[in-house]
Design a binder for these strands. Structure first.
Lengths: 87, 87, 87, 87
DNA sequence: TCGCCTGATAGTTGCC
DNA sequence: GGCAACTATCAGGCGA
């Protein structure tokens, strides 16, 4: 692997740098997102609920319903817990 | 602070050791929890939904309803998104 | 799953209760920790620095493990290369 | 909030759309990263080790910052002690 | 390919 | 009331 006299090393360096560049861009987008949520919050919206909205829009409807159905089954199975949860 | 000839140092050491012991116990309980979820999973339950159940039982009912209400307001505000989410 | 006449429900309940018990114990330990820090603070120590000390001691331990992990990664990589070369 | 006849709704929609756009870009960068690793792998490198390299380079950077933070903590602690002694 | 497990991200809580 | 640390959840990568 090192027997190619540094040829591979140059490739490796190139890969690493591409990776680090991409990760930096990703990080920057994360900052932007944080910024948008902060801005929305200062406008009076609730980031936590906004995240829920985004998550729901992203989530496949069938999948979401399936999960809700399973949750209901579990709560039903717990009997009085359901009552406690719903009271 | 160090001028008391190590008296405080002894106290500090005692505090640090109590802390580390408590943290170790906490960590161990975390392991136990993971274990229980794994066992439940192997029995056919869905850990993710179980966590939801635990969260709901813990969460104050009023608070939960409030959050759901706000979510609905947001989805309503988005109009056709609601339709997409509910379809 | 619910068609077994509550058999699974009993299991589910048992799991949930074990989980809630463990989480309660964890929470209690968290309280204890807070208590210790408060006590130390009232004795004149600085919680922030104590936390740093604990963190550093943990890191010292973790670092050794990190080194071992790194070594393993490199050995594994070498092993794979050997294997690749030997294929 | 919804009583303003959709004014806030328009804002909400704008925020949500900005968020979804940013998340899409982030996701795309994630794809790119995966691509680069795959390409490197097909060139004969070991993704696992490459990730380790990237991680270590990141840590080298972070470590310097960590040291500076620690120094500040200690200086702060000393300052507080001085203040406490001077009170 | 599936399950596990670690690393990344979001939420909560305590501190200032 | 905002900020920072910590915790819990989730997704992606790795190994079997």
């Amino acid at each position: 692997m090192a027997a190619d006299g540094g040829f591979a090393a140059g490739h490796l360096r190139a890969f690493i740098e591409r990776i680090e560049r991409l990760e930096e861009e990703k990080r920057a987008l994360g900052e932007d997102l944080k910024q948008v949520y902060a801005e929305a919050k200062s406008t009076g919206f609730t980031p936590k609920v906004m995240r829920q909205v985004v998550r729901l829009r992203k989530m496949d409807t069938a999948e979401r319903q399936e999960q809700e159905a399973l949750l209901r089954v579990y709560l039903d199975a717990l009997g009085e817990s359901v009552a406690a949860a719903a009271e």
